[in-house]
Design a protein around this nucleic acid. Sequence first.
DNA 1: TGGTATGTACAGAAAAAACTGTACAAAGTA
DNA 2: TACTTTGTACAGTTTTTTCTGTACATACCA
Lengths: 183, 183
Amino acid sequence: MSLDQLSQEEQSTVLRVRKRVIEAIGRNMDLYGVTLSTGHLYGLLFFADKPMTLDEMGREMSMSKTSMSTSMRTLLDLNMVNKVWEKGSRKDLYEVEYDWYQTFTDYFAIEWRKAVETNIQIIRRSIEEISRMMREIPEDTAIRGVLEVDKRKMEGAVRYYSWLNRLIDCLENGDIYQLVPKE
Amino acid sequence: MSLDQLSQEEQSTVLRVRKRVIEAIGRNMDLYGVTLSTGHLYGLLFFADKPMTLDEMGREMSMSKTSMSTSMRTLLDLNMVNKVWEKGSRKDLYEVEYDWYQTFTDYFAIEWRKAVETNIQIIRRSIEEISRMMREIPEDTAIRGVLEVDKRKMEGAVRYYSWLNRLIDCLENGDIYQLVPKE
DNA sequence: TGGTATGTACAGAAAAAACTGTACAAAGTA
DNA sequence: TACTTTGTACAGTTTTTTCTGTACATACCA
């Protein structure tokens, strides 16, 4: 059901309400590391009654096509919007992922998982290196103590990262809903 | 145990290993919305053997004191570092919060909670407004359909936010460790 | 109380990021 | 095949953010 079937006054009423919500959603999308204007684009798409093309968005947003294109790329990479295929149309169509639980999960599965994996690898390698050094150093020397402390700190970090990994697993496989049901 | 008890060579070895880890930690701190250089400062503090003052950090970091001051403020606000009081010293002392589980929880309790609360309030108010409008509009009109759809979308959002709120509760009260034990 | 050390506010400079317009590549259509 | 249409790469511009240095407020000390 499209907006242009409505009277001028009705349209502006609906748009005013939407705008406030779009603003609110967009403003907090920096938690996902996306730009305010990308957030607005997302909000626009959230209220769209059907998948939209870049041109349609441009009509409502006063943004360059290039900007919109890169914004959509960002949102696609985060699985926050989906590309929809419609035969007969050459244009790309976008629609928001309305399953926000999934969106939340994907964000962690994508961004946080990536960070965790890199860090865990770097730290493990560093622990290895330190252990190797320690084997070649006599006991009760100053450097041994320093290495010991550093190593312990890094081991703590690895333990935390492994927990975070398991937490993300629980998001992905849905176990989290046992503890925190959708309602 | 301080580094300057060690030989030049030993020091450089330790510093090389640390630097790689600091780099890794700092690079991914953008997930918490903090700057790369703030991340480096955090990393420096992570390996420090005792709470540090701004001047001590300045000696190792080549950053202006102002920058460091604001960085520390940011990290304090996120509960990622703590201010330590040591009598006899006029200087502020900072040390990292080594409980990273707590750090993770606090981040959500602070940043995400804030976003959720604002959005939930704005959306609830908008739902109210729409409901009020609908009561004054005859059935089976075009605008009613539009309002209906918008309302349903917003109700979905509220449901998600309430879930997120409960998830953050579970982080704060520790219930999360039933599902994902620290090990 | 005056003197000194310490952290931060503020304004301006530097750096980074976001945005735009053009030019082009890719893919569909006749 | 030539002709469109559509999305994106890229370089340059604008905007935003981060960083710095100075000036100042605060708190401690003698």
